[in-house]
C-alpha cells in the first residue's frame, strides 16, 4: 500500500501547502489497524516542515464508541491552541478528495513524550519540579474553553462511567473481586454530575504530553475528549500507572497533587479535592478495565500480539492500586 499512500499524501500536501514540492522520510509511528500515526517531512524551498499525520484509513471511518473522532480532535486542538493551551498546529484536516481516509495533519513539535525519559533523563532534571504545577495550569486552560465553540461531544457523568465500566467488566466474564469492590465504592460515593460541565480532555497524562527542557510544549491524544466534570482530568493524571514508578509523586511522577491544584487555581480554576480523588479511583479502575479489554482483543482478534496479551497481565497492577486507595494497610 505504501507507494499509493505516499503518492496520495504528496498530492494532498502539495494541494494545500503553498510552495511544497513533496514529502520525505515517511515513517509509521504507531497505531493499530483502525488508527495510524505517521511522521514525515514536507519538502519546501523555505525549509522542510516536520509533520505528523493521524488518520483512520479508508474503510475505518467509524470511531469507537468512546472516541470523539479525528475531525473533532482536530477541531479541539485548533480551539485549544487558539486559547493558549500548548498544542501542535493543525495544518490540514483530511477531506474526501484527499483519498487518505479521515484524520488530520499537524506540525511536528520537538520534545520528549516517553514518560520514563521525562522522569529520569538529566535533560529534564531542572524542569521536572515545575511540571505538576504546569499541568494544573494547562488543564485549567482546557477546562476554560468556551463550550459553545466546541464540536459536539458526548457528556459523561460518574453514574454513566460506572455503568460503562461495569458493563465492560461483566462482559469479560472473569471474576475480579477487587473490581467489584471498586465499582461498589464508586456507586456508594458517587458525587453526582458536576455543577458546571466543561470540556474534559479524557487522557491527559504523562505519556500524552510533549515536554521540552522548559516545560509542557504540547498536549496530544484528544481522542477521549468529552464534556463532564473537570476534576476527572485532575484525577486521571494521578492514576498510579501514569507515575511510571515514581509513586510518591502522584501527578504523573512529576510532583505533588497540591502543586497541580495550586497551578490550576492560580490560572483561575476551582479545585474540588474530593471529586479529584474520586476520579482517581475511577481512573484506576478504568485503566484496569482497558487492560482486560486489550487481553480480550488479543484473544478474539484482530490484534493477536504478545504486547496486547501481556497488557492483560497488567490489570492486576490496578487491583493493588485500588486496594491502596480503598483499603490501605499500615506500612504500605
Amino acid at each position: 500500500m505504501s507507494e499509493g499512500f505516499a503518492a496520495d499524501l504528496t498530492r494532498c500536501v502539495t494541494a494545500w501547502c503553498a510552495g511544497a514540492t513533496g514529502v520525505a522520510r515517511l515513517a509509521r509511528l504507531s497505531g493499530g489497524a483502525s488508527q495510524e500515526t505517521w511522521s514525515f517531512d514536507i519538502l519546501h524551498p523555505d525549509g522542510d516542515i516536520g509533520a505528523i499525520l493521524r488518520r483512520a484509513p479508508p474503510g475505518y471511518g467509524a470511531a469507537p464508541e468512546r472516541a470523539a473522532g479525528l475531525d473533532a480532535e482536530a477541531a479541539l486542538m485548533r480551539r485549544a491552541g487558539a486559547a493558549g493551551v500548548p498544542s501542535p498546529p493543525v495544518l490540514h484536516v483530511l477531506t474526501a478528495t484527499d483519498g487518505l481516509g479521515t484524520g488530520f495533519i499537524m506540525g511536528r513539535v520537538a520534545g520528549e513524550t516517553i514518560a520514563r525519559k521525562i522522569l529520569r533523563d538529566d535533560a529534564f532534571a531542572a524542569v521536572r519540579p515545575k511540571l505538576a504545577r504546569q499541568a494544573g495550569a494547562v488543564l485549567r486552560g482546557i477546562h476554560g474553553l468556551d463550550a459553545a465553540t466546541l464540536p459536539a461531544l458526548r457528556r459523561v457523568t460518574p453514574a454513566m462511567e460506572i455503568a460503562e465500566l461495569a458493563r465492560d467488566y461483566r462482559g469479560f466474564d472473569w471474576p475480579r473481586p477487587v473490581f467489584d469492590l471498586a465499582l461498589r465504592w464508586l456507586a456508594d460515593n458517587d458525587p453526582g454530575p458536576a455543577r458546571h460541565d466543561t470540556l474534559v480532555h479524557g487522557d491527559f497524562r504523562n505519556g500524552n504530553l510533549i515536554v521540552g527542557t522548559e516545560g509542557i510544549r504540547a498536549v496530544l491524544d484528544w481522542e477521549l475528549a468529552h464534556v463532564g466534570d473537570p476534576m476527572e482530568d485532575l484525577g486521571w493524571i494521578c492514576v498510579n500507572s501514569w507515575r511510571f514508578g515514581a509513586i510518591d509523586k502522584p501527578v504523573g511522577g512529576f510532583g505533588a497533587r497540591e502543586e497541580m491544584f495550586a497551578g490550576y487555581e492560580a490560572a483561575g480554576g476551582h479545585v474540588d479535592v474530593v471529586r479529584a480523588n474520586y476520579w482517581e479511583v475511577m481512573g484506576t479502575l478504568r485503566w484496569g478495565v482497558m487492560c482486560c479489554g486489550m487481553m480480550q482483543r488479543f484473544r478474539t482478534g484482530p490484534d493477536h500480539s504478545m504486547e496486547r496479551a501481556m497488557i492483560g497481565r497488567r490489570a492486576s497492577e490496578t487491583e493493588i492500586d485500588l486496594l491502596r486507595l480503598l483499603a490501605p494497610r499500615a506500612g504500605g
Partner: peptide, 8 residues
C-alpha cells in the same frame, strides 16, 4: 505478573 511494580 509484575514483581517489580513499585506499589507491590
Amino acid at each position: 505478573d509484575q514483581p517489580n511494580y513499585a506499589s507491590y
